[in-house]
Amino acid sequence: MPPSQAALWRDPALPHVESRRACHSRACYKAHSHPTFSIGAVDAGHSHFTGAGNGQERLTPGTLVLVPAHRVHACNPAPGHAWSYQMLHVDAHWLTQLRRESGLDIADTAAPARICREPAVYRQFCEMNRVLFSSASNAEKDAALIAFLGDLDCRAHAPLLAAPGLGASALNGLLARVEDMDPAHLSLELLAREAALGRYQLIRAFRAATGFTPHAYLLNARVNRGRQMLGEGQALAEVAYQLGFADQSHFQRVFKAHVGMTPGQYRAD
């Protein structure tokens, strides 16, 4: 049987969020609560959850539990078995501010936990958590978190979240601003202020207009520019530097994810 493994991600630069991964765990927990809004995801095995207001629920792989701050709950593996899970904790005051930016005033501390069994939401959660544990910039990690939480609220409170729009002039101005920014320091706050939108509203409107979040758009634009520069014979290190990547290895990872080959392979072909 594989040994139990656990990993914790947190960063002083993003004090409003932390995440945990556990594989093949047999740890059991007493009923407890957190001062944070918490999301748990079952990756493998089965578990029993209390806190949703319906007695004990059996959770299968691909299930999420959404636990309001201070809600008493417990989640444990089936007796005699191991399970794998992810657990995200988000500062409740930070989340309240994020929601207010979008026009939501949700006081859910007295509400029971919610159980989500939608495969698409589980996949989105896993991708967001993968970004948190990756070597992506803090700005990119924060944007991934904001996008996921905003989409989650949008599913639950769609009538209250009117879709924001961007006119052609405003969109062109934002595109120009995004392309001029350092990828590691692309500021959602600054762009949102300029567009007179909340941070999630900006992501949602930008995604509706371009198919990309601002960070994804910037990376795609950088990769396309990199293809041109590599085709002109420029050195990999110089291309990475000119495009604003932290280092050559970061540029190689992003380039391969978009193009399907490394920059060196692309230039050689």
Rank of each mutant, 00 (worst) to 15 (best):
C75Y: 01
L175S: 00
T109G: 06
A144D: 00
A136I: 02
I115Y: 07
T109M: 13
L166N: 01
N129E: 15
P164G: 04
D91L: 08
R99I: 02
W94T: 02
L66D: 04
F148I: 03
A111E: 13
R100Y: 01
N129C: 09
V72F: 08
A143S: 13
P159I: 09
H70C: 11
G55Q: 05
D151T: 03
E140A: 15
H81V: 03
D153C: 04
L171T: 00
C116Q: 09
A139G: 12
R130Y: 06
V67P: 05
L98E: 14
H81F: 04
A147C: 08
C116N: 13
L66T: 07
H81G: 02
G150Y: 07
G62M: 11
M87E: 08
Q124V: 00
D105Q: 11
C75T: 09
L64V: 07
L171V: 00
V131D: 02
A147K: 10
R177H: 04
G165N: 07
P159W: 10
L98K: 03
H93Q: 15
L174E: 00
E179T: 07
T109S: 14
N172M: 06
G62E: 11
V178Y: 10
R130S: 14
S84H: 01
A156P: 00
A120C: 08
V67N: 07
R71N: 10
V121E: 15
L145C: 03
E101G: 11
H70A: 10
A74G: 06
D142V: 02
R114D: 05
E179H: 06
E57L: 14
E140P: 00
F125S: 02
P77Q: 04
F133R: 00
T50N: 09
S102W: 11
A110N: 13
V178N: 01
A78P: 01
L95C: 06
S102I: 01
R130W: 06
L98R: 11
G103A: 06
L166A: 01
R71G: 04
F133D: 12
A78W: 11
S84L: 05
G80D: 04
A120F: 03
N76T: 12
V90C: 12
S134K: 02
D153T: 00
A144Q: 04
T60N: 07
E57D: 13
A136R: 14
Y85L: 12
S102N: 12
A82T: 13
D105N: 13
L160E: 15
A110T: 12
A143R: 01
D105M: 05
A176P: 00
V67Y: 01
A158Q: 11
Y122K: 07
R100K: 14
P119L: 09
R117E: 13
G167I: 00
E127V: 08
A170L: 05
G51H: 15
G165R: 15
A82F: 04
L95P: 03
D108N: 15
E127N: 07
T96V: 10
D151Y: 09
G173W: 00
V72W: 12
R130E: 14
H73V: 05
F125L: 07
R130T: 13
D108L: 08
A143L: 04
A92N: 11
G62F: 09
